[in-house]
Design a protein around this nucleic acid. Structure first.
Lengths: 337, 337
DNA sequence: AGGCATATTGGGAGCGCTCCCAAGTCCTGA
DNA sequence: TCAGGACTTGGGAGCGCTCCCAATATGCCT
């Protein structure tokens, strides 16, 4: 069970080096020998010791995925599971394994990074949902460690992939305006996160471009979870909005709950637009108009970017921005004008 | 940045061995030397090479978490994120890192295990949501590799932790019976999974103990997702049930949707009991009576069990069963008798 | 002061692999 | 038949660490 190259070599009647060549599919091995060695490897169910290999190659073929904001509330959002899954699959496709690191709720983020960096066993790092003042960023500027951020970066020369949050939000709000809604509020994400800020910017721009005032009392900060959507909507109801742009579907669901609770109807009394296009958006009552985020692409492209960086196929700063589309459903289907 | 023990030793004016002792906090180092070495380590931001260490210790302090059933539908269920998070945190607490492995949708599970076992860089393995005919199980019986299953095992001598699914289901259905509901249907989970079978058994036992017939036409198989709850409920509505035991909250949500769609009311016309007690159960309309699963305990205890096994503090078969409790909310609040 | 037990330190060996270079084998063509 | 090139194979060195044992320093007792 726990043999080494030398052992396999003995059984196949060749040298350690030849077995190594077979395993790493080096060209200079005769077909005859290759087959013989392969058979012994199979019979013995031999798996080379990756620690030994890493020691000499200085590569582990492990990627770390770090999610600092994984407080339980955030993690209930299917956004992360989807992202994790797409990263995993892409990594495995390229023969990389993935280590996961989640922040403890209430823990300072640098404690998490201490934990991560204490473990040197990975070649590169993906960071999802970093906050703007993330303590990782300064650490990164000095070292030249391969990292790809998923989401908006707080420094301009970092590697990252993101969806065009601002533009998407602008489209969503413009759509509301074009369909006659006037008093449009928004429930934002946590404003220490870049994506949340960008979505709010898009909201403001759309209003300005339509010549509508930006009323600060119609802007409520949430934290992406259902409850904060509910609470935020209660506030906006008091301010008599007739439409709401929610920075996430999950919060939009909370907003729906608040609206039903107030015995109002969507979209007859109030229109709602979400963000993410989670599966649940399509089955909500009523089905939610929302911005479709290409979460799968985000995850798998981020992984490809990181691997490109590791292979020297790309150099930092390496950056990509993905478009996001408006998906119209019943929560805005009826014109108000 | 990438020095070694020898380098640190030189800077601190001691030997490689002494530095090693300081890092591993061996007792036989004088306080004076210890401080001096520590300071150099700090200054140089030195982190020992884990590959080299693993090569000699034959331990990596990495755990693998394998979720074979992670088809997108399953993964939308917050059960997994919660479980993953609790495992991660407990592992980190014991200074272990966690590698994650997810099955690709439509992929045969043994392909996943091939991938996992090709990577020898972990000391032990946690497997969540294995199916009954999981191809891992035969592999396990031969090797003596440390594995803890999360969920019901298909072989009696495996290490596992589980909640008492059958008993919990029995309590839930008995509660319905005691409150006067008569024609009780059930939407099960996928019946190739042990937990789903156990919950169905509990349903049947409760009926039998109350002297009620088990009507096979009132048993509908789902697959734990929202849509299958919806579809299952449509079938049960045709069969005129007055109460439903759903094997998951997410399916119960689907069932609620079907009931609303049919213009019936919960609990006035139909009572519903779920399973899991996800956060969403409390905020559903109406809030869901359900079985509370201690997901966090499940994950962190499974991790502790695995570490016990690795440390030789426990020997296989090592097994634990956690109780689950009924949480009564409005979806059953009104007696029907 | 000297001797002995104990605390502290140093260095060799070896974990299992890859990489490099040298040696061996085979085949071709004049 | 034999030189010369290409293909194939073997083995030494070394990656950075831990562990063991031997060597040295320290402290205590008589």
């Amino acid at each position: 069970m726990s043999q080494n190259l030398e052992e396999i070599a003995r059984l196949a009647g060749v040298s350690r080096s030849t077995v190594s060549r077979v395993i790493n599919s080096h060209p200079n091995v005769s077909e005859r020998t290759r087959l013989r060695v392969m058979r012994v490897i199979q019979e013995q169910n031999f798996r080379p010791n990756l620690a030994a290999r890493s020691l000499v190659t200085q590569r582990t073929r492990i990627l770390s995925l770090v999610i600092p904001q994984a407080v339980s509330a955030t993690f209930t959002d299917p956004y992360f599971p989807t992202l994790i899954q797409s990263i995993m699959l892409k990594a495995n496709e390229f023969d990389y394994a993935v280590m996961l690191w989640l922040g403890k709720s209430g823990e300072r983020a640098d404690r998490l990074y201490d934990r991560v960096f204490k473990n040197s066993l990975f070649d590169g790092m993906l960071v999802a949902a970093a906050v703007n003042d993330d303590p990782l960023i300064p650490r990164l500027t000095q070292a030249n460690f391969p990292v790809v951020l998923i989401g908006p970066p707080s420094l301009s020369n970092l590697n990252y992939i993101d969806v065009d949050n601002q533009h998407a939000a602008e489209i969503a709000v413009s759509y509301l305006i074009q369909n006659g809604w006037k008093r449009i509020g928004t429930i934002t994400g946590p404003l220490n996160m870049g994506a949340a800020v960008a979505r709010l910017d898009g909201y403001c721009r759309a209003l300005q471009q339509a010549g509508l005032p930006v009323d600060k009392t119609l802007i409520v900060e949430g934290n992406y979870d259902e409850q904060s959507g509910y609470t935020g909507m209660r506030v906006l109801l008091e301010r008599h909005v007739d439409a709401v742009f929610s920075a996430s579907d999950v919060m939009a669901l909370g907003a729906l709950r608040a609206i039903h609770y107030a015995n109002l109807r969507v979209p007859d009394d109030i229109a709602i637009v979400g963000f993410d296009d989670l599966p649940v958006a399509a089955t909500a009552t009523p089905p939610l108009t929302t911005i479709h985020q290409p979460i799968h692409e985000l995850g798998s492209m981020a992984t490809e970017m990181l691997i490109d960086l590791l292979d020297g196929k790309a150099r930092p700063p390496y950056q990509k921005i993905l478009p996001a589309q408006l998906v119209v459903r019943e929560s805005t289907s009826q014109s108000h004008g």
